[in-house]
């Protein structure tokens, strides 16, 4: 090592870290504060709209993991009635190919990313657990008409702007506009 710059390089580095010391932190206090996720988020659930599903099983065919299990029987009005639809989300890699392949717009990616469980068997979602409901909203993935209805994603890129997440270390300035859900 030759201190060819007389240690100025190190001092410059110290200045940079000091500059960052005075910058607001970028971490978010997760359970209390949540960022608004992407409108197209592929959360860890699938949302199934029963009324539109014809039981064609295209989703099952398109799944790379062979993860969607669907059993149907012929109904009275010349239609298929889905007896069983089961997705093991523990094996699912949320690639979204089933959603893209669905010809009847009956399958959506979910918006939730908080479906961790303690047991693997709880990750196997059955027909009832997949149905569209109040707390299981579809995300805009592959469906622009849903996408436009959802709130805009908070971007770290706009951290210094009013509509972005504005974070500050000093407690008396903490009330600033953080991206809350």
């Amino acid at each position: 090592m030759r201190f060819e710059r007389y240690g100025i390089g190190i001092i410059k580095g110290l200045m940079v870290t000091m500059k960052n010391f005075l910058r607001p932190p970028i971490t978010l206090q997760y359970p209390e504060e949540k960022l608004i996720t992407s409108r197209r988020i592929r959360g860890n659930e699938l949302v199934w709209q029963v009324s539109k599903c014809t039981g064609c099983a295209t989703c099952a065919k398109s799944c790379p993991q062979g993860n969607i299990e669907i059993v149907t029987h012929l109904g009275t009005e010349n239609n298929y009635v889905v007896d069983k639809l089961q997705v093991d989300t523990g094996k699912c890699m949320f690639c979204g190919l089933c959603v893209e392949s669905c010809p009847y717009e009956a399958l959506f990616m979910g918006r939730s990313y908080e479906r961790a469980t303690y047991r693997r068997r709880e990750l196997v979602l059955s027909k009832e657990a997949l149905e569209l409901s109040e707390d299981r909203q579809p995300s805009g993935y592959f469906y622009p008409r849903i996408e436009v209805l959802l709130p805009r994603q908070t971007l770290l890129l706009y951290w210094d702007r009013e509509d972005g997440q504005k974070l500050c270390w000093f407690p008396w300035r903490k009330k600033a506009n953080r991206g809350r859900r």
């Binding site: 970028i26 996720t37 992407s38 409108r39 197209r40 988020i41 592929r42 890699m93 949320f94 690639c95 979204g96 190919l97 990616m109 995300s139 993935y141 994603q153 971007l155 770290l156 890129l157």
Partner: peptide, 22 residues
Amino acid sequence: FREREKILDLFEMVCGQRLTYN
């Protein structure tokens, strides 16, 4: 990682995920 996060945000916006984009 702070800068990388900005890029991941962009990818999330486009394809809905942050690591395995597909």
